[in-house]
Design a protein around this nucleic acid. Structure first.
Lengths: 214, 214
DNA sequence: CCTGAAATTATACGCTTGCATAATTACGCA
DNA sequence: TGCGTAATTATGCAAGCGTATAATTTCAGG
């Protein structure tokens, strides 16, 4: 018998789920997938382990929700930069820079992503999220590239735009990966600079100096 | 008491280690890191579980060896193509194509890589392997690019070659990743073609038609 | 102020894990 | 041919896993 049972208060379901998802991401990032046990997650979230099965049908279900949350956060961080007002060139530039700058480029974010990947192949829901996220990013890039080329007076065919988007997406993904995997290997803004230069070379676009830039 | 103890024969230590490493990679790829338990590994390798600690100081030690083996295999597969005789342009082309074609581009290889990644941050030996592999690939690419530009009569500064190598490495890594993560998303030789086009755009090189090519 | 039901905690269960150790087997060498 | 020993198998162990369920607490509504 316990000497004293911990006190608690009833919280909103959304808050509880939120706390569990946050705790899952924290543990997955810091101690790897193996460290994200139901006991550790519940403790990190400040509640008892029964809550996981009370709010999610299984631990697996919570993992899927955490994966969706993580990918959504990465998407949002870049999306915000690309939907601001400005020229098409500016929006494309901002999109690329945001993708290659913290907090998107981050050892934690990248380890988290890798930790999820192996589950993607075995869980249909996770695979759907994976595909959706990938195509969403690439399509966004394609639209931005197409707009920038139209703006520059050198509009390309859809097929060309698609290939450019695939290639630019690959450069960005690769730089993102390497920035996360070897943080010390690159100077502060080096990744973003290389990303812009590469996208310019691939698409034939030019990123002009902006007002205020040296 | 067992009705009958399984028979066995004494094998070379190297054969046993080899079999254990192979089994580890197979399981890590097929069932994820969580599936690579000492019992499953031993069974897959066709021996009893005690052998793991007889030939490796711990399961962790075996994992490190398996990671080294996997990265070495990936490196070798591309290296072989780049060290053949031929013009610098041909060697660079072969290097890129090999990196973006099976068996290097492969869902299994990529899942395996991702499964290891989270351990890299916590194990110094694995981190060393990780860094060594990355820089080895990138340096190889830098040398090939520099040679191709020299051959084409447009030699560049070391700093330029470095940036080109980083960018080309990123394209290749990104395409490799996507080819492994979404195998159905790309046609057979699409990744290699996009890789070559992108490297050409980034470096200013040209990959000429080869004899026998359509 | 009660009371009922939902929320939350605590605990128990069956399995699996990595590792340690005991029991047995195979094989080189006298 | 038999012996000793290293190689190999089998078994035991404590800890941790995800899940199920019982016990308790909170809180809204009469």
């Amino acid at each position: 018998m316990p000497s004293s049972r911990r006190s608690f208060s009833r919280e909103q379901p959304e808050q509880r789920k939120e706390a569990l998802i946050e705790a899952t991401l924290k543990l997955m990032a810091e101690t790897g997938p193996a460290g994200a046990t139901v006991r550790a997650i519940a403790e990190t979230a400040g509640m008892s382990q029964g809550m996981i099965r009370h709010y999610f049908s299984s631990k697996e279900d919570l993992i899927v929700a955490a994966y969706e949350r993580h990918m959504h956060a990465l998407t949002e961080a870049t999306e915000a930069q690309a939907s601001q007002a400005g020229s098409a060139e500016d929006r494309l530039r901002n999109f690329i820079v945001a993708s290659l700058t913290p907090p998107v480029v981050d050892a934690r974010a990248m380890a988290l992503w890798a930790g999820f990947i192996h589950m993607v192949r075995r869980d249909q829901a996770m695979q759907d999220t994976h595909e959706r996220t990938y195509y969403h990013f690439r399509d966004r890039l394609e639209v931005l590239i197409a707009a920038a080329r139209r703006e520059a007076g050198c509009a390309a065919t859809p097929a060309t735009n698609r290939r450019h988007a695939i290639a630019c997406n690959a450069v960005i993904d690769g730089l993102w990966l390497e920035g996360g995997a070897l943080p010390e290997a690159f100077a502060d803004s080096e990744l973003a600079e290389i990303g812009l230069t590469s996208v310019a070379a691939i698409t034939g676009l030019e990123f002009h100096e902006r007002k205020g830039a040296p």
